[in-house]
């Protein structure tokens, strides 16, 4: 399954992009986007790797895990955004203290 491998590697690329952005970007909204891209990449790796079975045989277990993961992801994003709002309301900044120049 070339397709599955291709998308698995794409997921890996997304994971790397997200991780690098998470480390280097300072704006907190950007960090949240990075976490989301990173998560999407991990889901794609999971989906791609388990799609390499023989045709017409689809493993439902990783699908269920990814669906659970997506919902947890959005919950975490919403909580993260609420915390960003709070940080902004308290300090007037949208970056972490140790990353301000």
């Amino acid at each position: 399954m070339v397709t599955a491998l291709l998308y698995g590697l794409t997921g890996l690329g997304l994971f790397a992009l997200g991780l690098y952005a998470l480390i280097t970007q300072t704006h907190l909204l950007r960090k949240l986007l990075a976490i989301n891209v990173l998560g999407g990449g991990i889901f794609l790796v999971l989906g791609g790797l388990t799609r390499r079975l023989a045709d017409n045989l689809i493993d439902p277990v990783p699908h269920a895990m990814v669906i659970t993961g997506i919902v947890v992801d959005i919950a975490a994003t919403a909580l993260g955004l609420a915390i960003v709002m709070r940080i902004h309301a308290l300090t007037g900044h949208t970056t972490l203290p140790e990353e301000r120049e």
Binding site: A4, Y7, F43, G47, G48, R51
Partner: peptide, 18 residues
């Protein structure tokens, strides 16, 4: 669209809705 290509319409639905 990628999830559709990977034959996972369940995940595609969740991804679209969310």
């Amino acid at each position: 669209l990628v999830w559709i290509r990977l034959d996972a319409p369940d995940i595609a639905l969740a991804e679209i809705a969310i």
